[in-house]
Design a protein around this nucleic acid. Sequence first.
DNA 1: ACCTGAACACCGTTCAAGT
DNA 2: ACCTGAACACCGTTCAAGT
Lengths: 214, 214
Amino acid sequence: MKPADLPSLQPRKTPHQARSTATVGIIFEATIQVLLADGPNKLTTTRVAERAGVSVGTLYQYFPHKQALLYAVLQHHLSAVATAVEAACAVAHGRELEQMAQGLVTAFVKAKTAHPDASRAMYKVAAELETQDLLRDIGQRMLDAVTTMLASAPDARIDDLPAVTLTLMSALAGTTRAVFERGATPRLLRGLRAQTLILCCAYLRAVALTPASA
Amino acid sequence: MKPADLPSLQPRKTPHQARSTATVGIIFEATIQVLLADGPNKLTTTRVAERAGVSVGTLYQYFPHKQALLYAVLQHHLSAVATAVEAACAVAHGRELEQMAQGLVTAFVKAKTAHPDASRAMYKVAAELETQDLLRDIGQRMLDAVTTMLASAPDARIDDLPAVTLTLMSALAGTTRAVFERGATPRLLRGLRAQTLILCCAYLRAVALTPASA
DNA sequence: ACCTGAACACCGTTCAAGT
DNA sequence: ACCTGAACACCGTTCAAGT
């Protein structure tokens, strides 16, 4: 009956000198390349180290285990998306519902499609058990931003805002994921933007109570 | 420059005698249990064989590699969901749009939540590279059923039906996934059914052109 | 400070030997 | 027909030794 071990997913040490800063960057880049070239099943710490041109030992100096490495890559990618969503929410703050949906969908799709190959690779990594907290945390950042934005709409009041926001964002994530899993062709991407915008607008209109003008 | 090897994901042999039929069932069950108890990272062919009470060799007699084992488990689960959706689509055939959305959402959510623990485990397995074809095939079964159903609605004509169906189903999948990734609490599940129904209805109404009554 | 790479424990998979 | 389990190649991770 041993206690559940929770090994840290944080990088083992923060690089302080120029040489080591470069090293983590190189390892990072090599990880993405191996992920794209060989797939997640064949991603090996040895292989990443090889591609990065360092020894395995060096890799383990910065990342305590393979999970931590993948975690770091995933974090970088997700954080970029969350930041984009936060920015879009700030821009659309106080505007009308329609414009919020437009800004949100555009920003989300754009951020996800900025590096399509890397994005696709991320979906493979994201299912690992240990990334659950990360997904929740970054998801929460986006939910908070969207909730704040929606609350500021002058043309609508929304009941049960948390449930609505969760539904909105997970529907958005679902449609985007589906397109990536189908290869993210230009045709699919055009459809994604268009259909998702209709979806989000229609949903927000359906849950919005027009404000009592008393 | 070796050619990409595409090892079959099919079971290695079909059991023909009573004993071996029982064996695959036991292995199957053991896989789910190990998945739930230890998580996908610690899922080991040795561990599965141990739990099933057979030797590793026996396991490899039925499944050519670990992937094939996970593939079979995933296939079983997804196929059940697809069958439920197909049935719901058949029932709602020719009815009004609103009732279609209702039947679809209810059937999908019910099928996914029938075995919540197993469902959650499936999300971990589903990201593996080799399951892409399976996901696409079973997804297509559902898309076909939904497309046929929507085409039969007397109260609406829908342009670009394939794009609409894909958006609808992937939004549905997205919201369901989000709830599972948050632990599928009763509260979340109630919200899922309610919000997703609103979402699907609103979307279908938005893309539906009322038929020319000429 | 940072890097190396041989060494160890463990996992996927096989196959000769059993019933 | 079906099952067993020791054996092999390979992967994650460590650590004593180097600069």
